[in-house]
């Protein structure tokens, strides 16, 4: 019971607060912007040469306002946004007109979720393992080389790294396909060759994400491991003849894990944003590519839906990571 009160409840309250503030911020940001999406569309229609009499223009504006949820007072619009989120009904998409936005998201989201969960897990585990070992053996040559190489990659924007991989492995040395999720013109089917095809197409986006994210975890873990290595209990273990393997896996990594789990909760949003960019580079059929199309077409409903749902998704993932934390930290478990 004390666990619920001291650990679970504050986390849940924070979750609700973050979602609430995030979505409120998105609402006000879109209202503060000097551009009106309705006028934007009307301008577009007129530059395409569609002449309209004032009455028709007024009716079109009215219809668009209704579609976008921009009717009535600010308070009413705000409540409408929340209703849209709770009912998951974001109105029709503009770029594939009568299709509801939710329908599009339902098609694209599984791809993103698949890529996101696998790459996040792999980059976190790989980065922490390598970082831990390399922090313990910091004087070794390979450890120094690995660190330099990863420091070179680490600050680069996701788009550029993706582009470099695309040029090197897609155009120059054509080992991987340069776009999409599976072969063009082929429907989804559940057999082995389709599965292999999907893996082949998601390999480069996954590689880019894992490399960039893994470099970050590696650096942080290495720093932590180097500090723990100097602690008395490690010295003691060493002098009593505990094997190096056991020191790294039992003494160093478990102790450095805790801050890394906290970091994971803080960085998930950034990792997700970076992955959306990488999807765009490889035209991988996920939310990133959908967002890109929505931006190009000026599809207000779709952009709104992707942003708010992503905030919801990421906050939920963060909550899950927070709730997993006691598994790693016995102090919280047994309090």
């Amino acid at each position: 019971m004390r666990f619920v009160q001291q650990y679970l409840l504050p986390r849940l309250i924070q979750y609700i607060l973050v979602v609430f503030c995030g979505i409120t911020a998105v609402f006000f940001i879109t209202r503060l912007a000097p551009k009106d999406p309705v006028l934007e569309i009307l301008n577009q229609l007129q530059t395409w040469g569609r002449a309209m009499n004032p009455e028709a223009l007024e009716r079109t504006a009215q219809a668009l306002r209704e579609l976008y949820g921009l009717e009535g007072t600010l308070a009413k619009q705000y409540l409408l946004l929340w209703r849209r989120i709770f009912t998951l009904d974001f109105g029709p998409s503009l770029f594939q007109f009568p299709t509801p936005v939710l329908e599009l998201i339902r098609i694209y989201f599984p791809w993103t979720a698949f890529l996101f969960f696998t790459t996040t897990l792999i980059q976190w585990i790989l980065g922490n393992l390598l970082g831990g070992i390399s922090g313990y053996l910091a004087e070794k040559r390979w450890s120094k080389i690995l660190e330099t190489a990863l420091t070179l990659v680490r600050p680069l924007p996701h788009y550029l790294v993706g582009l470099l991989f695309l040029i090197l492995l897609g155009y120059v040395w054509q080992v991987f396909p340069v776009g999409r999720g599976f072969l063009f013109g082929k429907g989804a089917s559940f057999n082995w060759s389709f599965f292999v095809e999907v893996l082949r197409h998601s390999f480069l986006p996954a590689l880019t994400t894992i490399l960039l994210g893994g470099a970050m975890w590696f650096q942080q873990m290495k720093l932590l491991a180097q500090n723990i290595k100097r602690e008395a209990f490690v010295e003691y273990a060493k002098s009593s003849g505990v094997s190096e393997y056991r020191i790294v896996t039992r003494y160093i990594i478990p102790n450095a894990m805790l801050p890394q789990v906290t970091q994971l909760a803080l960085m998930v949003g950034q990792v997700f944003g970076g992955m959306l960019i990488i999807e765009i580079v490889f035209s991988y059929p996920g939310m990133g590519t959908l967002l890109y199309n929505a931006i190009i077409k000026g599809d207000y409903n779709l952009i709104m839906a992707i942003t708010t749902l992503s905030i919801l998704f990421i906050s939920t993932v963060v909550l899950c990571v927070d709730l997993l934390y006691p598994l790693f930290d016995p102090r919280i478990r047994y309090r």
Partner: peptide, 13 residues
């Protein structure tokens, strides 16, 4: 909150 939210998406919006 600013750290947790995918800021990049808000920037795009």
């Amino acid at each position: 909150g600013m750290l947790v939210i995918p800021l990049f998406l808000v920037l795009i919006l």
